[in-house]
Design a protein around this nucleic acid. Structure first.
Lengths: 340, 340
DNA sequence: GTGAAAGCGCTAACAC
DNA sequence: GTGTTAGCGCTTTCAC
């Protein structure tokens, strides 16, 4: 193996404890010894063996971030923020995928990696309260992105129902009456999809509009292809919609593309609202109106909360942190500004 | 800490060596002992402590993937493929960022994480041959995405010069004569940018066209915003271009957006070609002509090569694997099919 | 087929 | 301010 504390100690003519103290600074070390240790470290190129350190003190400095996928900019941005924040605190992030799959989410939450990670941040798609209460692993866990009530873990969430309601109110405000939803899930357990659909229905009810199940398109996944496939179905209806609220931006962007191919004008014929505010929607044609959660803050807060638990600086009851969101209006609902 | 071998051994009434052998299967174990050990493991929920294992045998089962950033779908797709492939072999991937920064690339290649990882896959932006020859770390390394000649490491690359040349030939074939390049770097060390620009110049020369430095736009980064900022500069020239070859798809997509805002038609007024074939370009308006490297294969091959080195199954000389690429023509150079 | 024990590199308790 | 040493959980050699 590499250079060890013992090698340095021998070279510098001191004990391993002194070397350790130079490296970690737990105890004061005399100037003379310190200097010789430093010199030996430089010459031999020492860096500490993390496994040994872990074995000794039970920490690796690695936290896992489990997300459904990376091919969605929403999660990529979240991961990016988390990785950078973790780095600031001296932690490294290990990414795990769940594919939005219940079994994999359970596996991860139950400590599939538990022997190597200090803590876990999970973006749940299917896990529910019961699953979380039954969790046996002792690895600290922070939930992210989804609001799950009354669960014994910190979670950094946005209010999907309220956000969806706001998106819908915007569509109603600009005079749309037949609003479709694309991205419902056959699997009722998929929490975010469920909650956004709930917000959709609530907004309809509050506006005194009927809920028409034909306007709700169920998709297998949440990608651009699903949105592109959804719009033609809706336009084939006897009374096609005049607006679409998409589960997320990727679906919305698929809808924008399908509209081009069908020769449908956005927003004139159909207005489109997404959810996530990924950068892509700021450059699409038309640009995309969307709900913008603060992804960077969510990632940072999640890491901060987890590290707080790990180092003991956070001992309060598990907390539900509601992160703010904002509706960002762009061309897909308002059209090009006349001046442009 | 958790349940250890010793706990299982006590419960099953055998020695730790026997438990270890049941878990790892290095030596045969009697049926009776095996059964009792299994039962104890089930009851107590044992899983091995990776740090201890590593300390003992020098391996963690973790490999690092160091990429410039995650907010570019190209790297997200690459990482996705790598993580999945690694999982199949029982390895876990740890992501590191370099931000395309030379210092960080050096740090990573020199084994910043070396004490916890078994091997490293690096997507270099700035490291050159000399840096790689001077590398002192003994951690196995595989290079990815960039062709660096005569370097003592496996690398899975595509030929940026040839690919750029092909993109340019397509633009020339459709009759464009003033072709701009967006995404050159002030920093001459940035290898991919350098090579793609080289392909651009070679293609111009082969076509008997002059190289006009005013048609080359230097950018700080490689994002959509850089493309959007680049186009107006070019259109302000006395003789604006009739085509743009962008360093990557994100820049190209920024160009598409800027064109909309400037009222310039794509491809009629200006044709656009990108590089990477990220999914976004298949849904943009217009859809994006681009060079398509096989990202999934690149990620998989890189992991396979690295693991081959780690487990000793790959002992040949370091190899440069050229991965294929293809030009994918879409609306940004060919326009809408008449039938649509 | 099984067990005892050394030792991987490190930290921290304990001595001086 | 410094040194000695036990022991974290594991694999593996050596004995039986």
């Amino acid at each position: 193996m590499g250079v060890s504390l013992k090698d340095i100690a021998k070279r510098a003519g001191v004990s391993v404890a002194t070397v350790s103290n130079v490296v970690n600074g737990y105890r004061p070390v005399g100037e003379a010894s310190r200097e010789r240790v430093r010199k030996a470290i430089d010459e031999l190129g020492y860096s500490p063996n993390l496994s040994a350190r872990h074995l000794r003190n039970g920490r690796t400095g690695i936290i896992a971030l489990a997300i459904p996928e990376l091919n969605n900019a929403y999660f990529a941005e979240l991961a990016d923020a988390a990785i950078r924040e973790a780095g600031l605190h001296g932690y490294t992030v290990l990414l795990d995928y769940t594919d939005g799959d219940r079994e994999k989410e359970l596996l991860v939450s139950e400590g599939f990696r538990a022997q190597i990670i200090d803590g876990l941040i999970l973006s749940p798609v299917q896990l529910d309260r019961v699953d979380l209460f039954n969790r046996t692993s002792r690895t600290p866990l922070v939930l992210v992105g989804e609001r799950v009530h009354d669960v014994p873990y910190d979670h950094i969430a946005i209010d999907n129902v309220a956000a969806s309601d706001e998106a819908m109110r915007h569509l109603l405000d600009i005079g749309r009456q037949r609003i479709a939803f694309i991205g419902a899930q056959t699997d009722a357990n998929r929490m975010p999809a469920h909650l956004r659909l709930l917000g959709y229905r609530e907004a309809l009810r509050n506006a005194g509009l009927d809920y028409d199940p034909r306007l709700v398109v169920t998709t297998d996944r949440f990608g651009r292809a699903d949105g592109a496939a959804g719009l033609p179905q809706l336009m084939a209806l006897p009374e096609p919609p005049d607006a679409v609220f998409a589960y997320n931006d990727l679906i919305a962007i698929g809808v924008l593309r399908a509209a081009v191919e069908l020769g449908i004008r956005v927003p004139d014929d159909i207005a489109v609202v997404g959810f996530d505010d990924i950068e892509e929607g700021r450059y699409s044609t038309p640009t995309l109106t969307t709900i913008s959660p603060d992804k960077a803050s969510i990632g940072r807060r999640a890491v901060a909360a987890l590290i707080g638990r790990l180092d003991g600086s956070r001992e309060a009851e598990p907390e539900e942190v509601q992160m703010p969101f904002a509706l960002v209006t762009r061309e897909s609902t308002l059209g090009r500004p006349a001046s442009a």
